[in-house]
Amino acid sequence: MTAGELVCPAGTPAALRTAVDAGADSIYCGFQNATNARNFPGLNFTPQELGKSVEYAHSKGARILLALNTYPPAGKFGLWREAADLGADLGVDAFIVADMGVAAYIAKTHPDIRLHLSVQAAAASPDAICYYVREFGVKRVVLPRILTIPEIREIKAEIPCEIETFIFGNHGLMVEGRCSLTNYATGLSTNMDGVCSPAHLVEYRRDADDGMSTRLGPFTIDRFGPQESAGYPTICKGRYVNSEHPDGYYAFEEPISLNLSRLLPALMDAGVDAFKIEGRQRSRAYVKKVVAAFRAAVDDVRAGREPALADLAALTEGQKQTEGAFQTKKWR
């Protein structure tokens, strides 16, 4: 059984301190630019804030993982290079990368700092993962959320690096790092500009029946009844109308959150080294509650106790939870 490192999100310095105090083993975060996949307004860290946060985390025995997990467009690589150099100067413990060019730069320039392969790289086979390990010295792969636990166990047996899996947050069934839905609707790229459904193009409208419509750019992507739980304004979670479904249906995914708290023992037994909680865009309240719940659960599993599982349903999208493909690929 692995140690089950708890990898927690932070969108602000206050959230980072909250995560550390709630029991995070490591915290992932990003700069205030397109070098990370949560380039949202008012979120993320200035270099000064990151420097202080690294000091705080290290003083409490926690580690900082800097997300540089977007893909540099042609002619703009300098921004990613500068972010990597800055992160190294500030003492981060690892870089989370998706792009091979960024991985190669860090492997060559900062060889003493760990490289983690982001889920944005969508590496789901032993061959792909071994390539990254061999070429760039990747120490950990964050697996896509499309694998069952038996499949994870098989992959673990064939790769020479650590495995990290998501345990709470977005269900994430898209081929991550390849999604162009936002690009199609808005002209901005999730994978290069770092923002899925950019907030300045999201609009919520109150309907005549006291319901709510969600729009992204020129498209209405969902409509909620007055008492109906809402979800994020992403195209993949939208409901659409066609001749077969005149009242609308979820064409891609549903607003539902992944929650693997019940599967922690099985995941640790399968060789998962680290557990990722999603939510850099979420509040300190979310970070505190979710991190504390999973800290207690992981500690219980480590100690051979039945994990006490806190009720996190109120924090889930659509107020619904799933174990997704980890339990079965027939989840829907």
Binding site: R206, F224, S229, S283, Y286, L315, E317
Partner: peptide
Amino acid sequence: DGDAIFFSRELEIT
């Protein structure tokens, strides 16, 4: 959490 109260419709934004 702001997102949670938005999901539950306790918070409305336009």
